[in-house]
Write a protein that binds this DNA or RNA. Sequence first.
DNA 1: TTATATACAAACATGAATGTATGTAAACAA
DNA 2: TTGTTTACATACATTCATGTTTGTATATAA
Lengths: 209, 209
Amino acid sequence: MVRKTKEDAELTRQCIINAAREVFLARGVSRSTLEHIATQANVTRGAVYWHFKNKTEIFHAIRDQVLLPLIDRMDDMLAIDSAAAKSEDPLTQIENSLSETIFELNENIEMRQTYEIMMIKCEYVDEFATVLQQILGNCSSITEKIQLAYERAQSQNLLTGSHTPRALALDTHLFFSGLLHMWVKDADGSRFRFQAIELIKSHINLRRK
Amino acid sequence: MVRKTKEDAELTRQCIINAAREVFLARGVSRSTLEHIATQANVTRGAVYWHFKNKTEIFHAIRDQVLLPLIDRMDDMLAIDSAAAKSEDPLTQIENSLSETIFELNENIEMRQTYEIMMIKCEYVDEFATVLQQILGNCSSITEKIQLAYERAQSQNLLTGSHTPRALALDTHLFFSGLLHMWVKDADGSRFRFQAIELIKSHINLRRK
DNA sequence: TTATATACAAACATGAATGTATGTAAACAA
DNA sequence: TTGTTTACATACATTCATGTTTGTATATAA
């Protein structure tokens, strides 16, 4: 049975991406073969090669599909003129944007899998090295957004102590980066997953006057 | 020229480990072949197979050689009865143990390479999955040590606010975990490497009364 | 209606990488 | 001094993943 219409083709493309995510997660990117992916997707390698140039292209497809939207949303939540910004103080805004991300990881299986692949099932060499630069770029931009929020908090006299918004933002970013890593590595959920939201709240409260 | 004495053999073993570290770093663990490693060490695969069962065993050798001592030292610096504990307040003790680790990463090339391999040049699946559990275990133990230090700080009335030592320790641990990741990923050093020590100081100062 | 492009499946050719088996020279023990 | 083990190098067999090529049924455009 051969698929024909455009929609059918797009459907198999999605199947391949989903299959690749599962396979990458289970076997790591390097050890995953196009045969594994094809089998998981109930197609042959022919179909895979039709839709993608090689494994790297599938990898990027997976990444773009779920990671980019997440970053966009985080950006939105931290923006000055967002809906959130008008109803909440800047610190709560930061807290919510972090919590929201954790919430998404909990709810959205594909996103969780993708995060796990990117963090502990992938070796950042050669073609994948560029992805690292992208990640660093995203980190910088998010840190800046957080910094702006802290600046607003400062001008509203919400902060304890006399720390610069820049330092606070970097500290928050590193904290969250560490949290995401632990969240992913802590697969059985015993250590971090259950208390992630509390940790975020506690982190922000350290700054509250 | 064939090597003969015990010492010579141990020397080639070390050569192989060092070669493997370089190769793992450059190509990632998965893409590194025993042939690559052998060539880099100026031996043949025969020698590699004589000293190691397979690639995984080399991986573990690399890890044990530099990572375990680091963790031990960190434990020491945070211990109640260490030399550091007697001359410094608990918060400075925490700060120094973190700074010391960063200092080591800066000075010790092998350690830096090993960290980089473990964090972004390795896929944690199958045989390597157990390493993740070890890492999580180490994290727990270090967090507990930090917590004890915060408890001492609390009883000495050094802390601002009313946060529990447990929450502070987790926050510090996550911060440092994130810092290490960024430190490693930030290969050109532009973003994090130069200011790592400042970030640590700033993180601890957030807690100081 | 027919020609062409699409969306695959199946077959093929090639190039590794692995593990093992064998060979061998020197150290060391007896 | 000779036998045995050590510490490798070399050769071999096998498996496996990749990329490409070819075949083909159907959709779609002309």
